[in-house]
Design a protein around this nucleic acid. Structure first.
Lengths: 153, 153
DNA sequence: CACGTACCTTACGTTTACGTCAACGTAAGG
DNA sequence: CCTTACGTTGACGTAAACGTAAGGTACGTG
């Protein structure tokens, strides 16, 4: 019997994670997570040589993954992460962050429109195909399965 | 004086476009558009050596650009384009296209959620920054411009 | 007729985002 | 002590999506 995993805790009683745990959870490779560190997107603590990830790191990974799904580059995402760190800093810097935020908002609003439009088109396509298929069924018999081999892809 | 551009027309009276015109219109380089052709996303007609783009090509370019903004690879987009071409083909193939369509729809719905969530968070950040800035203004004077140098980032 | 402009091809270079070894450390368990 | 699991640091490889010459063709114009 394997015995439940021991849930790593740090000196302040906070739950921590190993790189392997995060990799499993987020469906990333170790290499990928280390790469994010190389690129300055993560900066986990260390226990000797080993990386120790906390709440904050985990939250950043969530944002990184989302950013990637949205098609942003790691560099973009890095800039992006500073927006979440913000809340302190000098006035000029805050204004800069706000400018960044608003640019990002514009981009995302555009993207939102793109997604919605594409979804609408795909639904039309789906309906069209369904139409064709049901009409085909009406004209010919009910059998059509396993007549031909699957095409190469 | 340059004289208005002569609006190229093909033998069927259909408006056509040169690669340069499309590049300008879509904000792409010639190289990029040719690359899409190399990858099989476009297949313009030819006038001797020169590429001649018609309605269909232009429409595909619209979809390509949108796909790219949505973070899809050219390979994805190519698959994607076949969905729009569809409407003919054998039953098995139609079913395959419908499967593709629905997978794509799922991905986009996920993306839609991502975008909306990110937008909401960014709006919160924006508001937070505005708060900080206005409170700062209340406490100190109205002047704040050019007090300190910009921080490194 | 030389020049500019717009197009073409071929081909190597570049950036991003990791993959893929290689070689090694360490702690747990049989 | 040996194995297994999990971690570490280089360092080189690679696929995608173009960039960037370098050089050639074709057309219209001063």
């Amino acid at each position: 019997m394997p015995g439940a995993a021991p849930l790593r805790i740090d000196s302040d009683g906070q739950r921590t994670y190993t790189i392997g745990e995060l990799a499993d959870e987020f469906g990333l490779t170790l290499r990928t997570i280390r790469h994010y560190e190389d690129e300055g997107l993560l900066a986990p603590a260390r226990d000797g040589m080993n990386r120790v990830y906390g709440h904050r790191d985990r939250a950043r990974l969530v944002l990184i993954c989302r950013g990637k799904r949205l098609g942003f580059s790691l560099a973009d995402i890095k800039e992006f992460l500073t927006l979440y760190d913000g809340s302190d800093g000098q006035v000029r810097q805050m204004q800069h962050l706000q400018a960044l935020t608003r640019r990002r908002v514009s981009a995302l609003e555009r993207q939102l429109a793109d997604v919605q439009q594409t979804l609408a088109e795909l639904h039309r396509i789906d309906a069209r195909i369904t139409d064709h298929l049901t009409q085909h069924l009406r004209r010919h018999g009910i059998d059509e399965t396993s007549t031909r081999e699957d095409k190469n892809l």
